[in-house]
Amino acid sequence: MKKFLIRILLFWGIFIGIYSIFIIRFIYLSNKVSFEIEPNKNILVLGDSQGQFCISDTIIGNTYNLCRWGEGYLPNYLKLKRVLNSPNQIDTLLLIFTPLKTDKNADKTDFSPETVNHTLGKYYPFFSKEEFKLFSFPYFMQGVLRSVTYTDISFQSFGSSGMLYGNHIETVIEKQNKKTPDKTFYGNKVELKYLNKILSLCADHNIQVILFSPPMYQADKFYDTSNFYKIYHKEYSHIPFCDMTEINFPDSCMADINHLNIHGARRISHEIKEIGLQNFVRKYPPSRQSIFTFPSATSQ
């Protein structure tokens, strides 16, 4: 028995030792990534794939797009903190704010098992105590253990603008209809909390926040837009909001129901470049005005 226990301890000691070296390496390299933004860029774009495939920072020269697919406000807050702690000239934050972000199940972005790989595992080196508390230990360990395989720990891997090709609206709708709904309920408390944290962080650094909702295909049909506008008018109506949710955008510019393709991204990026961001925001005010008093915006 003694021999057995010693060998087991030795084996696990070696295994954990080797593994820890890789984890420490990952944490070290992640923390070494420079989030410095070039001085000629004064607009930072944050959000998920909707922003990533909408704003082209090669067309709009003074913007930097740090959006990344599948990322909620939690990772975006962590990225913003890093950017603001590094040399930068950012004075405006263009923040993606869409019905997906206020959905009653929006926290799925942070907590569903699918995100273990690309969100939790990637961002835990930036976590503070508060973020650690959000995740259960086994779930957190999965993220940590899997993180050692990340080979790309560059600044670009945290987000960049991109382009989608083609039009797949019909296929996506067909797939969506057949999809078995996920029964797990995650709520939206965490997402909205981190949205507020982004807003306060920007206020502390005198950065103007502009909320932006890119065009969507029949948003009313696929998303809870009334809840989205309720939340906006109740909580964020003091913030400029560039709302293209219900703009009648040509299908040829859509990659699917909530992403623009290369034509749509170019069209919007060129428009922003030509008329300037402030005029662009004025051109697309919130499409629904506040007419009700709202009882409660968040749900858990």
Binding site: F11, I14, F15, I18, L145, R146, T149
Partner: peptide
């Protein structure tokens, strides 16, 4: 043998 076990554990994790 131990290298083999470690490979299998890593495959399970990853």
């Amino acid at each position: 043998r131990w290298a083999l076990y470690i490979i299998l554990i890593c495959l399970i994790i990853h």
